[in-house]
C-alpha cells in the first residue's frame, strides 16, 4: 500500500520533472538564437564565453608582467625579520622603510638620479632633432643612392656595439673626453646615437604620410627649403618628436654598455651604480663592522632596483597616452 503510494508519488514527480524539462527545452528552442548570441557572440558583440576567455587570458598575462614588480615592491618593504620568517610571503608584518633608506644612500640617489636624467635627456634631444632632419631628407627628396643609404641605416641598427665601441673609447681617451657627456652627445648629433636608425625610420614614415600640398604652397610663396622644413614640416610632426624623445630617453636611461664604456670614472648613472650595488653597499656598511641585520640582503637590493626604475615608471604613467596612442599614429612599424 505504502509502497504503491511511494511509486505513484515518484511517477508523478518524474512526470512533472519531464514536464519541466520539456518546457525548458522548448523555451531554449524559442530563444535559441539569443542564448547562442549570449555565449558565443554575434557580429556586433563578442559573447559571454569569448569575453570570459579574453579577460582570463589578459589577466593571466598581465599578472606575468606585474609579478616581478609586485615581488620587488613587497620584498623591498620587508624587514630583516620578515625576510627570515618563512610564514611571511606576500604581506609583510610591518611597512619597513629601512631598506629604502639604505638603498638611497648606497645609490647616492640624488647625484646619480640627476646624472641619469642628464645622460638620457641630452642625447635624446639632439638625436630627435638630427634624425628628423635625415628622415625628412629621405622622405621628401629624390636623389641618387637612397637605397644604399637605407641599407647603411639598417646596418647601423644591426652592427653590435662591441664592434665599434673600443676604437671610439680610445679616441675619446686620447681627446680627454672620457667620462664626459659629449661621448654620448657627439654620435647622437650626427645620427649615430643609440638606435638612431629606428628614429630615422619613424620620421621617414611620418613625413611620408604628411600631405605635400602645404609645403608646395609655401615654396610657391618663396619659402626656401630649410624654411619649409622648419615652419611647416616640423610643426606637423610634433607627435613624432614627442614619441621619439620619450623612447630615446627610456633607451638611453636603460643603456649600460655604452654608458659604462664611455662614462666610467666620470658621470655615474643610476643603472651603473645599481650594477655595482653590492660593492658600494659593502663600502658604506662593511660586512665585518655592522650587525647581522644591516648586512646586504635581497630586500635592500630590490629596493635599489625599484628606485632605479621608479623615475621611468612615473614618467610612463604620466606620459602613458603618448607611449601608446601616438605610436599607433606615427607608424613605428616602419615597413
Amino acid at each position: 500500500m505504502t509502497a504503491g503510494l511511494e511509486r505513484l508519488k515518484k511517477g508523478k514527480r518524474l512526470a512533472s520533472l519531464a514536464g519541466y524539462l520539456g518546457r525548458g527545452i522548448s523555451w531554449l528552442r524559442q530563444h535559441q538564437d539569443g542564448i547562442k548570441a549570449l555565449f558565443f557572440g554575434t557580429r556586433s558583440s563578442y559573447g559571454l564565453v569569448f569575453t570570459v576567455l579574453l579577460y582570463a587570458l589578459l589577466v593571466a598575462i598581465g599578472f606575468v608582467y606585474l609579478y616581478p614588480l609586485l615581488f620587488m615592491l613587497v620584498t623591498s618593504l620587508k624587514s630583516p625579520a620578515d625576510l627570515l620568517n618563512p610564514m611571511v610571503q606576500w604581506v609583510p608584518t610591518e611597512l619597513y622603510t629601512g631598506n629604502y633608506v639604505k638603498a638611497l644612500r648606497v645609490l647616492s640617489y640624488q647625484r646619480t638620479l640627476l646624472s641619469s636624467i642628464l645622460v638620457s635627456v641630452a642625447p635624446s634631444i639632439v638625436q630627435a632633432a638630427v634624425c628628423s632632419l635625415v628622415g625628412y631628407g629621405l622622405a621628401r627628396y629624390r636623389f641618387w643612392g637612397k637605397r644604399l643609404l637605407f641599407a647603411l641605416i639598417l646596418a647601423t641598427f644591426i652592427i653590435p656595439p662591441q664592434n665599434t665601441v673600443i676604437p671610439q673609447m680610445l679616441t675619446y681617451r686620447r681627446l680627454g673626453l672620457l667620462g664626459n657627456i659629449l661621448c654620448l652627445v657627439l654620435p647622437a648629433s650626427m645620427g649615430q646615437g643609440f638606435r638612431s636608425a629606428i628614429f630615422i625610420l619613424i620620421f621617414y614614415q611620418t613625413f611620408l604620410s604628411l600631405p605635400r600640398v602645404l609645403e608646395e604652397a609655401a615654396r610657391l610663396d618663396g619659402a626656401s627649403d630649410p624654411m619649409v622644413f622648419l615652419r611647416i614640416a616640423v610643426p606637423a610632426a610634433v607627435p613624432s618628436y614627442i614619441v621619439s624623445f620619450i623612447f630615446s630617453v627610456v633607451w638611453y636611461w636603460n643603456e649600460t654598455y655604452l654608458t659604462v664604456t664611455f662614462l666610467e670614472g666620470g658621470i655615474q648613472t643610476l643603472p651603473m651604480q645599481l650594477s655595482r650595488f653590492v660593492q658600494a653597499y659593502e663600502n658604506l656598511y662593511p660586512p665585518g663592522m655592522v650587525n647581522i641585520f644591516d648586512r646586504i640582503n635581497e630586500a635592500v637590493k630590490l629596493s635599489g632596483t625599484f628606485l632605479n626604475i621608479l623615475p621611468l615608471l612615473v614618467m610612463y604613467l604620466l606620459l602613458q597616452k603618448w607611449f601608446v596612442e601616438s605610436v599607433e599614429r606615427t607608424g613605428i612599424a616602419g615597413e
Binding site: 643603472p271 632605479n308 626604475i309 610612463y316 607611449f323
Partner: peptide, 19 residues
Amino acid sequence: RTIFFLPVVITSGPVIKEL
C-alpha cells in the same frame, strides 16, 4: 595596455639581472 607596455620602460640590463 598600460600593463602590457610596462616592459618597454623597465627592461634594462642591471634591473633584469637583479630580478
